[in-house]
């Protein structure tokens, strides 16, 4: 079955959405991410949407759900790389993506995650993280 890859880097989970997601794929990503957070005790989730050409109300809801669920599981979510045309369209559509933290690119997103955890362990290669 088609899936979006979730990479683990230290205490963070990284996702790059590079396909035009149909709704089931987006829901699978939501479930997979929630399971991985719980399984790996990840403290942060970074979702790169720079390749997404649109974010409609459904994808917006999935992103908001991921942020809410990860917060309940004690992990922060940052969405990075939104294209300007997508941001403009989202605002006119009426979606504010409340509760979702954003950053302009992966580097700034990682910095945001690290500072929000307020420690030095996040993002380091920690061999025990999977156990």
């Amino acid at each position: 079955m088609e899936r979006i890859a979730i990479l683990q880097m230290g205490h963070f989970l990284l996702v790059t959405i590079q396909v035009d997601m149909h709704d089931h794929l987006a829901m699978t990503l939501q479930d997979d991410l929630t399971n991985r957070i719980s399984k790996t005790s990840a403290r942060g989730v970074l979702i790169d949407i720079s390749a997404l050409e649109i974010v409609d109300s459904f994808i917006g809801r999935i992103l908001a759900n991921i942020a809410k669920m990860s917060r309940i599981l004690d992990a922060e979510t940052v969405v990075v790389g939104m294209q300007p045309a997508v941001a403009i369209t989202l605002v006119e559509l009426g979606l504010s993506l409340k509760g979702i933290r954003t950053a302009l690119n992966v580097e700034k997103g990682m910095a945001l995650l690290r500072s929000s955890l307020g420690d030095s362990q996040g993002g380091s290669m920690d061999g025990d993280a999977e156990k």
Binding site: I54, A85, T89
Partner: peptide, 17 residues
Amino acid sequence: SLINQTKIVTGASELAR
């Protein structure tokens, strides 16, 4: 324009769903 492309494609996605 890219913005108008994005708007009509987003609208199409909403209505198709």
